[in-house]
Design a protein around this nucleic acid. Structure first.
Lengths: 200, 200
DNA sequence: ACATTTTAGTACCGAATGGTATTTTATTGT
DNA sequence: ACAATAAAATACCATTCGGTACTAAAATGT
C-alpha cells in the first residue's frame, strides 16, 4: 500500500526518504519537546529542504501526526506487546512499570505523553492521533484487567475500565516525572499497589 | 513595602494598575493556556501599552512570574489553608479532593499545573517560582502527614515525605484531567485510598 | 512661564515562524 | 535532440513575536 510497486518512470527520481525525516523529527521532538522544535529546525536536522517536507507531509501538523504514528508503532508498541503477552497480570504490570519508570528508552520521557500535554499547541491531525492512541491504550488495559479477572488472576472488585483508566493515568504520570529527570518508581509502585487485592 | 507612602511629587502620575494587568494576564493564561497568550495579547486585554508592561515587569518572564505569584497567594492559598487547618487528616484530604476535582474554581484546570507542564517554554524567573511552589507544597504535605502521625490520626507505615510527594502528584494529575474536561474523581479517590491504613 | 521629571503611547525593529512561488535538476517518452 | 514530467532547492512572503527608540502628556519645582 505504501510502497508503490508502480514505477512512475517519469520525472526526477525522489531522493527524500520519508522515514529519515520522521526519524529526525522524532528525535528532536522527543528530546527538545515537540513545541520547541520548529519545522525549519526539523529540515535542518534532516538535511532536507522545506518544500520537500511540505510536499510529503502537507504541513507541520501532518509531520507531527506522522511522527506520532511511527512512535506509536515502535515505542508504544513495546508497551502493547507486554500487555498482550501470555504472562500473568502481576508480571505484565511489573514489566510495564520497569519499562516506563526505569528503562533508559524513556530517559527523556515519552514523546506521546509530551505531545498529549501540549495538545493545545498541536494541529487537529496530531490531536486526532493522540485521541486514537489514548483510546487504544484504554481498550488494551481494559481487556487486560477483564481477561485477568475471568481467568482468576485478578480478584479485585474494581471495574475493569476504572482500573484501566487508572493504570493509564499513573503510567503517564510516571513518564512525566521521567521527563523532568525525577525517579517515579516509589510513587508509581504506591499508586499501582491499589490494584492488587492483597499482598502476595 | 509595596505601596509607597512617599509621594514622588514629580512627573506624570502613574495610571497603570499593576494588579489589573496581572489579573488580565492570569485570566488569559488560565483559560487559554500560558503558552497560547502572547504579551501583545495581554496588553490588548488589559488595555495598556506594551512599554508600560515592560516598565512594570521587565519582560514576559517577569509578568508570568508575577502572575504565578499572585495565583499562588490567592488560589493555591486556599489549598494551603485547608492543609494547615485544624481538622483531622481525613477531612483535610476530602476537602482538598473536592476543591481540586469538583470545585468550579478549577473548571479550566489549575494555572500552576499548566505552567509547570509547560515549564520548558517559560523563562527562568517563572521556572524559579514554579520550583518554589512545588517545594512549599511538598513541605506542607509532609508536615500534614508527619503531624497526623504523631497525633495518631495516621497509622500508615508510609514515610511522610513519600505520602506527601504522592498526594502532590495525584492532585496535580487530577487538575490536569480537569483541564481536559474529564472528571478525575474516581481516579483520584482510588489513588488516595492507598494512604488510608484501613477502611473506616 | 518654564524647565524638570516621570509616565503613557505610537511606531518601529530584528528574528523567527509557517508556508509558497519560482526555478533548477534529473529523469523518461518520443 | 527535445518536449514532458516530477521532484529538488533557493529565495521569498506575510505574520507574529518579544523588545525598544522616540515622542507626547501630565504632573511638580523654581
Amino acid at each position: 500500500m505504501s510502497s508503490n510497486p508502480e514505477k512512475p518512470s517519469r520525472g526526477r527520481p525522489k531522493t527524500l526518504k520519508k522515514a529519515a525525516v520522521i526519524d529526525a523529527a522524532m528525535q528532536a521532538y522527543w528530546q527538545e519537546g515537540p513545541t520547541n522544535v520548529s519545522l525549519n529546525e526539523v529540515c535542518a536536522r534532516a538535511g532536507v529542504s522545506k518544500p520537500s517536507v511540505y510536499r510529503e507531509f502537507g504541513n507541520d501538523d501532518g509531520l507531527a501526526a506522522a511522527v506520532l504514528e511511527v512512535y506509536a508503532e515502535t515505542v508504544l508498541g513495546q508497551m502493547l506487546g507486554i500487555v498482550q503477552s501470555d504472562e500473568d497480570l502481576g508480571t505484565k504490570l511489573s514489566k510495564i512499570v520497569s519499562l516506563a519508570a526505569a528503562d533508559p528508552l524513556h530517559d527523556h520521557g515519552c514523546l506521546f505523553v509530551k505531545m498529549r500535554a501540549a495538545r493545545d499547541q498541536l494541529g487537529p491531525k496530531t490531536q486526532a492521533v493522540i485521541g486514537q492512541i489514548d483510546g487504544m491504550a484504554l481498550v488494551a488495559f481494559t481487556k487486560l484487567f477483564a481477561q485477568a479477572r475471568t481467568e482468576g488472576g485478578w480478584t479485585s472488585s474494581l471495574p475493569a475500565d476504572l482500573a484501566a483508566a487508572y493504570t493509564h493515568a499513573q503510567i503517564g504520570l510516571a513518564l512525566d516525572y521521567r521527563a523532568r529527570g525525577e525517579d517515579p518508581r516509589a510513587i508509581l509502585d504506591l499508586a499501582l499497589s491499589v490494584l492488587q487485592p492483597a499482598k502476595v
